[in-house]
């Protein structure tokens, strides 16, 4: 059954979650980001879009795989460094980010599951906040099988009704989280439900941007691999990592050894985010680079999101959050690029 939570009781809920690490959007130096809430009373869900998506909590930019240590002559001791999986709740997750997590679930799941990812993922409770109005001028979730109030990937969805939140419990994890709040939650009444539904319906009309008729884009991209289109489109690309690091669905990573002591050798094997936009991403040790220029790299980003991922998982690897557009220092606009692909003469 759906619930109602008075906004004044929201801090009480957070305080009841003592067993959890609580992340919520916070404004630091004019930039919003999901940060560990040290002062739970100060958490407010009145925020637009974070720079770094919530993926950083389930898939941190840096994590340890294991520790290696030279033991006796030529022998090594390896110590697995799995995350402890502390219960974590992320407040204010946008619908596009919840959906994005379901896409990274596909990548890190499957036959060979990624233990490090799942340890954090399984411990994380995602509390969504429906977007009454688009948090960014570049939102286009509706165009990529999403919506501003999508429940995908979320455990709880909250909708701001003014002085109270309409709270939809979506999973067992969500149920447990709400039960921690106890009596501060009340049963929602039909008018509340109606009010939430109206906000949801209205929110769909407020998106400023759209990416229409992209059904044929995957097939189109396949035929455009060798097109000079990519040279033109990538002219202004400066090969930084913003579009991918800050994408909620991008999951590429690097694995490196970080040495802490040479004799005896000791250190850790570390996973960090990586991006197809850096030239050394695909460079062979020989110096040969199958993606030698920024045209090839832009093509990879678009193809991965709108062709390869669709071929493998039947979904776009883009949830329309618009971060790559908003934050690109040179204004490369994924909507415009994909539209041009759509309209490209074969």
């Amino acid at each position: 059954m759906d619930k109602i939570l008075a906004k004044k009781d929201f801090p009480r809920w957070l305080e009841a979650l003592g067993a959890y690490d609580v992340y919520a959007p916070q404004l630091i130096d004019d930039v919003w980001n999901y940060e560990l809430a040290t002062d739970r009373k100060a958490v407010s869900l009145d925020y637009p879009q974070t720079a770094i998506p919530a993926k950083k909590i389930v898939f941190p930019q840096r994590e340890f795989f294991f520790e290696f240590r030279e033991a006796d002559t030529d022998d090594y001791k390896l110590k697995e460094l799995l995350p402890e999986g502390k219960p974590t709740v992320i407040f204010g997750v946008r619908a596009c980010e919840g959906k994005a997590v379901t896409l990274t679930d596909l990548v890190f799941g499957g036959e060979i599951a990624d233990d490090y990812y799942w340890k954090r993922r399984n411990a994380a409770v995602l509390v969504g906040l429906a977007c009454a109005s688009p948090p960014s001028t570049n939102c286009f979730c509706l165009s990529v099988n999403g919506s501003p109030h999508s429940k995908e990937g979320l455990d709880v969805l909250m909708t701001d009704l003014g002085d109270q939140y309409y709270v939809e419990i979506l999973t067992d994890k969500g149920k447990k989280l709400v039960s921690e709040g106890g009596a501060i939650f009340h049963e929602a009444k039909p008018p509340d439900k109606k009010a939430a539904e109206k906000i949801h319906a209205d929110s769909e009309k407020k998106l400023a941007r759209e990416l229409k008729n992209i059904k044929d884009v995957p097939a189109k991209l396949k035929g455009m691999f060798a097109s000079p289109f990519w040279d033109d489109e990538s002219m202004s690309c400066i090969r930084c990592g913003i579009c991918t690091y800050l994408c909620p669905t991008c999951h590429c990573f690097d694995i490196n050894d970080e040495v802490e002591s040479q004799t005896p050798l000791a250190g850790r094997r570390v996973r960090t985010w990586d991006t197809c936009q850096f030239p050394d991403f695909t460079m062979h040790s020989s110096g040969h680079n199958p993606r030698p220029d920024k045209a090839a790299r832009l093509r990879q980003r678009i193809n991965h999101k709108f062709q390869y991922f669709v071929e493998v998982w039947q979904n776009y690897q883009c949830t329309g959050c618009g971060r790559c557009i908003t934050l690109c220092p040179v204004g490369i606009d994924i909507i415009k690029v994909v539209e041009k692909v759509r309209d490209h003469a074969n």
Partner: peptide, 19 residues
């Protein structure tokens, strides 16, 4: 075929040729 690899299990995203 060989490409630069890191994870070996199709997750790190760098050795792809198409899908």
């Amino acid at each position: 075929v060989e490409n630069k690899m890191k994870c070996g299990i199709g997750k790190c995203g760098r050795c792809n040729i198409g899908r």
